[in-house]
């Protein structure tokens, strides 16, 4: 494992921790899209089907369990926790799941490396992860007041994706026969979706003003 991959995983982990901190400690999920969180839960559930069949490393297994556990518990908190759920911006978070899930499923059935259940599910999870942030970005744009933790959460997620791209570039030059178009292209699309957010995030940081996305 190279440094970019490890830094990417740690950034991903940090984003989840920031979100759990907000939900668990402040008892608020204001500005957080339940739709995006549900999509991530679906992403991990379909990608980690190999959890009990293929052992890669203790690190790999632990991280998979953490991402699965945290994504489902975040969904549970926003839906059912009696205090947290009150802060959920239900009326603003209107993105439809199936607009993203159905095209991704269709695309995974058409474009995959091998037409087996596990492989199609794995490909589906890649496509879905690429666009799962969209409901969250739409919600950010609608929310006039983006609090620090929400801004940091989205920033860390975007940073994790950018680091994964560096990881692929590194692996391409250091490992033999390393070509993975499906992963690379969906990963690139995913990272590009953050470009706009990054721009405004750095602007607000540079000018020391509160983060706000233009409508």
């Amino acid at each position: 494992m190279n440094i970019f991959r490890f830094a990417g995983d740690m950034t991903h982990l940090a984003s989840v921790l920031v979100l759990l901190l907000k939900i668990h400690t402040i008892k608020s999920c204001a500005g957080i899209s339940l739709k995006t969180q549900e999509l991530y839960a679906l992403v991990f559930a379909t990608r980690y089907l190999d959890l009990f069949t293929d052992y890669i490393s203790l690190y790999n297994t632990l991280m998979k369990l953490i991402f699965l556990g945290s994504s489902f518990s975040i969904v549970w908190y926003i839906r059912y926790h009696k205090i947290v759920r009150r802060s959920y911006d239900k009326d603003q978070d209107t993105f439809r799941h199936y607009f993203l899930v159905l095209p991704c499923l269709l695309l995974a059935l058409l474009i995959n490396e091998k037409f087996t259940f596990r492989e199609v599910m794995w490909t589906f999870s890649l496509y879905l992860e690429a666009v799962a942030i969209l409901p969250q970005l739409v919600l950010l744009q609608r929310t006039r007041n983006i609090d620090n933790l929400t801004g940091q959460y989205v920033f860390l997620l975007g940073a994790y994706r950018a680091l994964y791209i560096l990881n692929w570039i590194y692996r391409y030059f250091t490992e033999p026969h390393y070509v993975h178009w499906i992963t690379w292209i969906s990963g690139l699309v995913q990272t590009l979706l953050y470009a706009d957010f990054f721009y405004y995030y750095f602007q607000s940081w540079k000018n020391n003003v509160k983060l706000e996305l233009p409508a």
Partner: peptide
């Protein structure tokens, strides 16, 4: 490769 190397990623 038995499993594709990309599958060792998260």
């Amino acid at each position: 490769y038995e499993t594709s190397p990309i599958k060792d990623e998260l």
